[in-house]
């Protein structure tokens, strides 16, 4: 009985030991990659594919975590190593409000907002979140946008709840993912540029918007 247990232990210990070594090698790689970023005072991100989360960090501290609900990809996305965000793009980027001297305000954003100067009086609405301000806030950020990285990786970030322009929007999105990207993946490599497309879907609108807010062009990160 004891011999059988020992044998079972040895059989189990073999693969487990191998897995431990693989984990250790992964840990060493990720720690090396993170330390090179964390020793500076700049913010960086960690995209943990298997852990299904995107994190904003500084000095090794996790500032924000955004778990993603689902992911899918086409091509050969580079899902490991250090990357740098070179471009953040969206169909309709939020624009700043420009105020000219003398109180003349020019709203550049497409959706007009009612001006509300801070008054601090009882005339103000009971809930400050109720009215629009002449400001660029989290709610003004897009819920769908793409991030282009220096290694050619293209990540599309979107919120699950996003109303994607109705039926036409869904059709366009379906065509892009199910027809356009497979064909680009097939014919792309001949032009010397392989497709590297990753799509991350987040549960909440605010998660996608916060990522747009916090990710700036030039931010470095690690993909685990």
């Amino acid at each position: 009985m004891l011999a059988a247990l020992l044998m079972a232990g040895l059989v189990c210990a073999g693969p487990a030991g191998g897995a431990d070594k693989t984990d250790l090698a992964k840990k060493q790689n990720s720690l090396n990659a993170e330390y090179s970023l964390a020793k500076d005072s700049t913010f960086y991100f960690v995209l943990d594919i298997l852990g299904r989360k995107l994190e904003l960090r500084v000095r090794g501290m996790v500032l924000r975590t955004w778990p993603f609900q689902s992911m899918r990809f086409w091509g050969r996305p580079e899902l490991s190593g250090n990357v740098e965000l070179v471009r953040k793009s969206t169909l309709k980027a939020p624009e700043r409000i420009v105020i000219k001297p003398g109180g003349e305000a020019e709203k550049i954003e497409a959706a007009p907002m009612a001006a509300a100067k801070p008054t601090g009086t009882s005339a103000a609405p009971s809930n400050a979140a109720e009215f629009d301000l002449e400001a660029l806030e989290l709610k003004d950020m897009p819920k769908k946008f793409s991030l282009d990285f220096d290694n050619g990786l293209h990540i599309l970030i979107k919120a699950k709840t996003r109303a994607s322009g109705g039926f036409l929007g869904s059709m366009r999105e379906g065509w892009r993912w199910h027809i356009g990207l497979p064909l680009r993946n097939l014919f792309g490599p001949q032009t010397g540029k392989g497709l590297s497309e990753l799509e991350l879907t987040f549960d909440n609108d605010k998660d996608a918007q916060a990522i747009y807010w916090h990710f700036f062009e030039g931010i470095k990160g690690i993909i685990l």
Binding site: G18, A25, L79, L186
Partner: peptide
């Protein structure tokens, strides 16, 4: 052509994670 594109896509997906990542010590 689309079928071929999907086959290639599936082949690429099955090759993930790429060899050498997380190699044992």
């Amino acid at each position: 052509v689309l079928g071929a594109a999907y086959l290639i896509g599936l082949k690429q997906a099955s090759a993930w994670p790429p060899a050498g990542v997380g190699r044992a010590i």
